[in-house]
Nucleic acid binder design. Sequence first.
DNA 1: GTGAAAGCGCTAACAT
DNA 2: ATGTTAGCGCTTTCAC
Lengths: 320, 320
Amino acid sequence: MAVTIRDVARQAQVSVSTVSRALSAPGLVKETTRQRVLDVVRGLGYQPNRAARSLITGRTGNLGIVVPDLENPFYPAVLRGVQTRAGEAGTSVFFCDSREDPETEAELVRTMAAQVDGVVLCSPLSSDETITELANLTPLVLINRTVPDVSSVLMDSGSGMDQVITHLESLGHTEYVYLGGPTMSWSHNRRLQGLRNRARVLGPFEPNFAGGRTAAEQALKTNATAFIAYNDLMALGVLSHLAEHDIKVPQQISVTGFDDILYAAMCSPALTTVAMPTEEAGKVAVDLLAERLDDAPAERRELPTNLVIRASTRKHPTST
Amino acid sequence: MAVTIRDVARQAQVSVSTVSRALSAPGLVKETTRQRVLDVVRGLGYQPNRAARSLITGRTGNLGIVVPDLENPFYPAVLRGVQTRAGEAGTSVFFCDSREDPETEAELVRTMAAQVDGVVLCSPLSSDETITELANLTPLVLINRTVPDVSSVLMDSGSGMDQVITHLESLGHTEYVYLGGPTMSWSHNRRLQGLRNRARVLGPFEPNFAGGRTAAEQALKTNATAFIAYNDLMALGVLSHLAEHDIKVPQQISVTGFDDILYAAMCSPALTTVAMPTEEAGKVAVDLLAERLDDAPAERRELPTNLVIRASTRKHPTST
DNA sequence: GTGAAAGCGCTAACAT
DNA sequence: ATGTTAGCGCTTTCAC
């Protein structure tokens, strides 16, 4: 069996409680004895048994994250942020992919609830009621969505949309369409607000490559010279459809996306898109969770987005 | 406080041990009492405390996966497979991204070791010695790498390479270069074997987009008409570099990759590539881990790969 | 500042 | 087939 707190106590010639305190409440033991204990700990390679600890403290020292689709590069980036910040605090992270299914998602959170101190939830689809119910089970932090009395970290895609429009207008475009995502999606609605009726809205489309191809087909029936896609995956679908029909981007049509996923920089033409601070969002989510654990009230934190101009946008062909 | 096994026992008019057995050793209690217990369990919404359980059984019911780079879409796919299969067994999964750093990686595994029953390790870079040491800490299953006495799931990229060459030769190509990945990478070496000296080898290059761009530049100095990239990320870099220099793919140069990441189907031209059964590999890894927990000996399992022909390869321009 | 002792919720002998 | 009971390794009163 592994080395226990008793082994340490014996070898350091103190009681188990002193060892315990030396490790988790340094202020309560004399500095010299603390050092002695720490030396033995190191010498023996002692690692406290987390199960025993959490049995008594009621805390697990773990947290969970559930995302709708690990294949969307947006989410691995969030995972990274979460893991990075959690790791600094010695916290481990469980993950789950709900495969875009709200019921699976709720079930996953319920299962996790028993073995984590809180969960980061990326849930564009579940109902407010479901989320409220889950929030009663375990501390929750939402990403890019708001529900009353639940913490959120939000990426300001309204402002992102505003930047897109400003950019397009500075290029002389006057006719553009927004290729919308899921109607219930918070991000979609935020982008709609940022639009302020300055563009025609098509959709909803599936927020992926296939959805983008469908969207492009519809958008071509309008007289728009710029297509604003709900996200990069869709924008890539748009690019693919246009390439297939020999429509040159950006010479004939300008295209933009949202998210700035890795591929956005790798495709040709490289995509002009709104960069989301995904990794940062993951980190902030962990901070918010930590605050909740100290009984702080629910909080919302908004993170800025910014437009990355690449090769898929250009001056309006017929403008001066 | 949450509902405990005592609450269930009291309400079901049995002892705690009967409740315990009804849940974890159904064969040992009379069917009727078992039903009664189960009813109460459901009625009370009882969930066994995992900390208490693992304190006594020594098992956590968790497992971990550590990958070198969550931004490489290859790995989220493995995660998915792992989670899917683990979930079926009620097992939760911790994840960690080592950011391509072998030391971090080892540290991560050591930390995880204390709170999981085993870990799936995607570690192209660590030394055999390190891995052996880690394997002594906790049951390990390696993905795409072999170390004596450690279980592995392998994707047969040797055969994949063979398929690539056969395909290119059927198109009339005779001169091709392989743009190699990290020298120590098992996959790279397996691909080299599959090559059987039928192509010139360049590299090593970084196995990402930037590496692909560098590789393309070098490859253009040869007289090769087909570039075989170590992985899709590199192939995308190659595509990007060629596009920039107005070299038409596949009209002038054919390009292939490995992995069949999501974006391989989404770029233009869509990439001919060797599909790796990543998600399946994740599942099999969990199976192997489960076997190890039952004290089965280390085992290797090889999964087939297959060539997906898309638009980035074409008949050799000057062949009949 | 330190030690003794009582459990946290559960499983696994050991009885019956 | 079921009940009793002794801990798993740790933290936390409560004494001193």
